[in-house]
Design a protein around this nucleic acid. Structure first.
Length: 897
RNA sequence: GGGUAGUUAGCUCAGCGGCAGAGCGUUCCCUUGACAUGGGAAAGGUCACAGGUUCAAAUCCUGUACUACCCACCA
């Protein structure tokens, strides 16, 4: 790129395209396993949370993958062998729903196609959607080896075998069982769900009070319910045994309204005396609590709601076939007509809904496959308590433990088509007699009777079952592969808190069960990306932002930076597009700073260039050169920055790292050093330009994990200009460079910055044009400060735009004054607005007065002097001296006005 | 009902024992030869509230209020 002739603003598009192509061609992101695991220098390994193939990636993915890519690039640059394993997830119900929606638009249902044809459609979808996702990951600059042969998919052959093997082992261990239980049924999706796949939503409804008369028609009990339609399946009324209102009824029978059924009134301690009427209608077939009560009292089960959400024939002639909602209306009407409805109160409560389609969940009794969790959870709890798994931030450990401690068996079977078919085979001839067989491939014959006609269980596994195996299935488990040996366990998992239980906890359990090692050492939990008002992004709210659009508009680096700098571990981001403007401006700043340095290099002689490139390759040599204060300062700053950035990165504080680089690059480097460098004499040029190049190059290195494109572009342009061997930043080895700023130098810089700012403030306040050269007098200058001023005369002149300066013994009259601790700055003027000057100084006086009082109080406090650390006391003393000096200067000026 | 996090400038958020910070927004000045996607300067704060610990609290502890989220079988 020709920086001199090209535009003044950075254009990310061509740069991104260029490097994406270049990185892919260089196969920069692949990893190769070593024969043995080196525990001294373990590889950095991460498996991607495989995106569901439900559509395009959203901002959550952008954040997740930005964070992962930052860690990957960072550790790669630290010289680690890095493997970031890419893949996608089949996404079970979610994906099936998406394709069903597409079919619906064509006027078809999945049942019209049949299982086989439908699955074909699913695979077509998988291919398209998978490619879209790949393209997005690529565009984001993710350092993933996305070649087809390196891609994993939860439903590819290898992962399929892993799933079947895991199922088989758990089955043989007796951890998987089949049974009829109360499960969560999604009427719309037509499948069972596990407990954590049910979400709860607050809804406005009613609480109906219904009179259940006694058998003989006399006054019985009044029950309270939110689900009147379920009364058709009631087989008892339950009251608390100690409830004075109702306990006399226990043992009696009542007549279930709208039916001919006679049901008992039972006493059960599970009843909450304070709720509703204190009497509960018991529907054992359609409510988990009622089911338990039913078990305790040996009640009948009457199923009135079918799998399709319609009332069954058991509901009675007038209701059978009605949709559950319609039935509710009719039941309420009928109760009203029959005089049974005693009350109808507005009621706000939470109802369970399907996490994939938002429809109300129907709890019902069904035969399903379950995985026993207690033992698995116990090991996962231990792993966390013994710090084998560490959460960042650690506040997520408790919810994780809490969930595991209260875990219930996992319903793993789903009645959908898209997923891993249960590896269970039945003998067609004698299904009830012969043993079911568990195997990935179709067994040749029935083990019990030798019959060859076998049928596979129609159910598929919960999509999270295969996800749970991901950290080792990606490496070829159950085969003992080289990959598995070298890469497992992985280093860190980076994911959002919304799938802590669904996924993270399951991976830990499965990893411990099958690999006997935790699947990852660290878990970095990030938040979700919300809109600028703090609302969750959703299609229905219309507040969804497409990462691709943002990348097009502001550049990928800008989007990545904006996300990175706003991400505090575990916390949500309120994301406003404005934040991208700031990030985009930052890319422009970096580009222009580099452009300026390249332009300067253009003007340098070949000898100077050679010298500079020597410095860039051997920065330590700079310390031997004759350095000015500003040179020493910026070298000290970059050293400090390097240290801080690394520390933040190691602790997953990507936001801190981003902020540190931003502040250094813009605040220290551009605003001060580059400006200062502009006045360097030609004799010193090689050193100053050399320092600028060294500092900039290192800064680009630190920036690379966060902003890979622009850093690569500028670094390579710089290398080229300096005639250095080109190479990717990712592979670049920066020699260790440390330069410590002395306390004296730090103090000198502080003084100079205050001085320059002071002069600028006066200029600004009194509308002295920035370009106008003025003269400054330094009144009552200390001898030490005089030396600093003398040594940095031209620097001050340049930055504060002053023409000349003289040291004065007394305060000159008719001046603008700006008292510092060490000197009083005076700008002589023909006309001075004394009142304005006075009011500012008065204000400063009161501020400084307050500060001085605070400092004095501390220094007079014996407890402070004896108990505070010595360096703290020294610090306060020093500050006290400075503030005191400044105060007396302010007083002096005020007296003179 | 239990738990977790948050409450700091107009907005979005850092800071988490030792001078209250950044970005955006606001006001003023500036086309200076990297950048107006820029430079310089300024205004703006009872760090939610009440107690406590400490020489010292925005920061640690306790409680209160509000907000958000998570968990739980409130019919």
């Amino acid at each position: 790129m020709n920086f001199v002739s090209l535009s003044k603003t950075y254009d990310p598009k061509p740069v991104e395209e260029k490097w994406l192509k270049s990185w892919a061609e260089a196969n920069l992101f692949s990893s190769h396993p070593k024969d043995s695991h080196d525990s001294e220098n373990p590889p950095f390994v991460m498996v991607i949370p495989p995106p569901n193939i439900t559509g395009a990636l959203h901002m959550g993915h952008a954040l997740n993958n930005t964070l992962q890519d930052i860690m990957v690039r960072f550790w790669k640059m630290q010289g680690k062998e890095v493997n970031w394993v890419p893949g996608t997830d089949h996404g079970g119900i979610a994906t099936q729903n998406v394709v069903e929606k597409v079919l619906k638009a064509e006027g078809k249902k999945r049942t019209d196609l049949g299982r086989e044809a439908f699955l074909e459609r699913m695979w077509v979808w998988k291919k398209e959607c998978g490619n879209t996702i790949l393209e997005q990951l690529r565009r984001m600059g993710c350092a993933l080896d996305l070649r087809p042969e390196n891609m994993r998919f939860t439903m590819d052959e290898m992962r399929g075998r892993a799933v079947a093997e895991a199922f088989k082992r758990l089955w043989e261990k007796g951890l998987i069982y089949r049974g009829e239980r109360m499960i969560n049924w999604c009427v719309r999706c037509g499948t069972a769900l596990s407990d954590i796949e049910v979400e709860y939503e607050e809804r406005d409804s009613k609480l109906w009070h219904i009179h259940y008369p006694l058998e003989d028609g006399k006054e019985g009990s009044v029950v309270a319910t939110t689900r009147p339609e379920s009364m058709l399946g009631d087989t008892a009324v339950a009251v608390h045994p100690e409830d004075k209102r109702w306990k006399h009824l226990i043992g009696k029978k009542c007549r279930l309204p709208l039916t001919q059924r006679i049901i008992p009134i039972v006493g059960d301690k599970a009843i909450d005396l304070k709720f509703g009427t204190g009497a509960l209608k018991v529907t054992p077939a359609h409510d988990p609590v009622d089911f338990e009560i039913g078990q305790r009292h040996k009640l009948d089960l009457v199923r009135v709601i079918g799998l399709d959400g319609k009332m069954t024939s058991e509901a009675g002639e007038s209701y059978a076939g009605l949709d559950r909602d319609a039935c509710r209306k009719k039941v309420v009407e009928d109760l009203k007509a029959g005089g049974f409805l005693k009350d109808e109160k507005p009621y706000h409560h939470s109802v369970g809904v399907c996490y994939r389609c938002n429809q109300v969940i129907e709890p019902l009794l069904s035969e399903q496959w379950f995985l026993k969790m207690a033992g698995l959870a116990q090991k996962a709890i231990q792993a966390s308590k013994s710090k084998k798994v560490i959460f960042y931030p650690e506040s997520w450990e408790r919810p994780y433990l809490n969930w595991l401690e209260n875990i219930r068996d996992w319903c793993i079977s789903r009645q959908i088509w898209w997923g891993h078919r249960l590896p269970v085979w039945y003998c067609v001839k004698q299904a009830t007699v012969c043993q079911p067989m568990v195997s990935f491939d179709r067994p040749a014959q029935c083990v019990s009777c030798g019959n060859g006609e076998l049928e596979q269980d129609p159910d598929v596994l919960d999509t999270w079952f295969s996800s749970g195996l991901w950290p080792f299935s990606v490496f070829g488990w159950p085969e003992k592969t080289k990959d598995l040996n070298y890469y497992y366990p992985t280093t860190v998992l980076i994911t959002g808190y919304e799938i802590l239980y669904l996924w993270v906890a399951r991976m830990v359990m499965m990893g411990l069960e099958f690999m006997e090692k935790v699947p990852f050492k660290d878990v970095y939990i990030h938040g979700i990306v919300r809109d600028k008002h703090g609302k969750k992004m959703s299609k229905s709210l219309g507040n969804v932002v497409d990462p691709l659009v943002l990348m097009d508009k502001y550049g990928t680096d800008a989007m990545r930076f904006a996300l990175a700098v706003q991400t505090v571990p575990g916390r949500d981001i309120q994301f406003a597009e404005e934040s991208l403007v700031g990030a985009r401006n930052f890319t422009n700043k970096i580009y222009n700073a580099t452009r300026y340095i390249l332009m300067s290099l253009d003007q340098a002689s070949p000898e100077v260039i050679q010298k500079i490139s020597h410095y860039v390759s051997h920065p330590q040599e700079l310390t031997k050169a004759k350095l000015d204060l500003a040179d020493r300062w910026i070298l000290g700053q970059i050293s400090q920055t390097a240290k801080s950035v690394k520390e933040s990165m190691v602790n997953y504080r990507v936001d801190e790292a981003a902020r540190i680089i931003y502040e250094f690059l813009w605040g220290d480097f551009c605003d001060w050093y580059v400006e200062i460098s502009k006045l360097s004499s030609s004799g010193k040029k090689a050193e100053v330009l050399g320092i600028a190049c060294v500092v900039l190059e290192r800064c680009l290195g630190h920036l690379h994990p966060i902003m890979p494109f622009i850093s690569e572009e500028l670094e390579q342009a710089l290398s080229e200009k300096l005639g250095l061997r080109p190479g990717y930043l990712l592979k670049k080895e920066f020699s260790d460079f440390q330069f410590a700023l002395t306390a004296e130098d730090a103090d000198r810089i502080r003084f100079l910055k205050n001085l320059i700012t002071g002069i600028r403030t006066l200029r600004s306040e009194y509308n002295i044009p920035p370009g106008k050269q003025i003269e400054v007098q330094y009144a009552k200058l200390e001898s030490r400060s005089a030396v600093i001023l003398k040594e940095n005369e031209s620097l001050i002149a340049h930055l504060a735009k002053i023409q000349g300066s003289i040291a004065a013994d007394k305060l000159p009259s008719k001046s603008l004054y700006y008292p510092l601790s060490e000197v009083t700055i005076c700008i002589p003027q023909s006309e001075v607005d004394v009142n304005k000057l006075k009011s500012r100084l008065d204000k400063e006086r009161s501020v400084i007065q307050q500060e001085l009082e605070n400092l004095s109080r501390q220094l007079e406090d014996k407890n402070f002097l004896s108990r505070a650390p010595e360096e703290k006391v020294d610090e306060i003393r020093q500050r006290h001296t400075q503030v005191k000096q400044r105060q007396s200067r302010i007083e002096e000026v005020l007296k003179n006005l």
